[in-house]
Computed example of a mutant assay.
Amino acid sequence: MRRVRSIAGDSVNLLLFRETGRSDDAAEEALWRLNPALSEQAAVLPAGVWVSLPEVERHPMAVAPVSAWD
């Protein structure tokens, strides 16, 4: 588990994507479980908030595209 500090203007989703390359539901759920106190912050985090990052794979599995002709 790695900890990072937020930059002024970060949202939780933006911070997660910048640091892990992912912002899907599974990665975001893992982040919220590690940081339940983040829910007390505003939608935009102030600078300097410590956030524990979940250990997730850097790149999610590729999803097959959906075609209108299937």
Rank of each mutant, 00 (worst) to 15 (best):
R18Y: 09
D70Q: 11
P54S: 10
N35F: 03
P36I: 02
G9H: 06
D10C: 14
W69H: 10
E29G: 00
A42K: 04
E57G: 10
V12E: 07
E29Q: 01
P36A: 01
A64R: 05
D24G: 08
A47P: 03
L38M: 08
A43K: 10
L14Q: 14
I7R: 15
R58G: 03
L38Y: 09
R22I: 00
S39E: 03
N13T: 13
E28Y: 13
A47F: 00
R33S: 07
V49W: 10
N35Y: 03
R3V: 09
L34A: 05
P65T: 14
L15E: 10
V44K: 01
E28V: 05
A30W: 00
V56P: 11
R18E: 14
S23W: 01
S11R: 15
E28G: 06
L15Q: 11
A43Y: 11
A26I: 09
E19R: 15
A47G: 08
R22M: 04
S52I: 04
R33P: 06
A30F: 01
R33W: 02
A62S: 14
A42Y: 02
P46C: 08
V44N: 05
R33N: 08
T20Y: 02
G21Q: 09
H59N: 08
V12K: 10
L31P: 00
S67T: 15
S67W: 15
D24P: 06
L14V: 08
M1A: 14
A62F: 07
A26F: 04
A30K: 08
R18V: 04
A37P: 06
A43H: 12
E28N: 08
V44F: 01
L53I: 09
V51W: 08
P46F: 07
L16K: 00
S39D: 05
A68F: 10
A26D: 11
V56F: 09
V44A: 00
D25E: 14
A64E: 05
E40Q: 13
S11P: 04
E29P: 01
S67E: 13
P46N: 08
A47C: 05
S23Q: 12
A42I: 03
D70A: 08
A27C: 01
N13Y: 12
R18P: 15
V66M: 13
P65F: 13
S23G: 15
V12W: 07
L15H: 11
P36Y: 06
S39N: 07
L16H: 02
G48Y: 12
V49P: 12
D70Y: 07
A27D: 02
S23H: 10
S39Y: 05
E40F: 10
A8K: 00
I7E: 11
E28P: 00
G21H: 11
R3T: 08
W50C: 08
R5A: 04
F17S: 13
M1Q: 13
S6M: 07
D10I: 11
V44W: 01
R3Q: 02
R5H: 10
V66C: 12
V66K: 13
S52W: 02
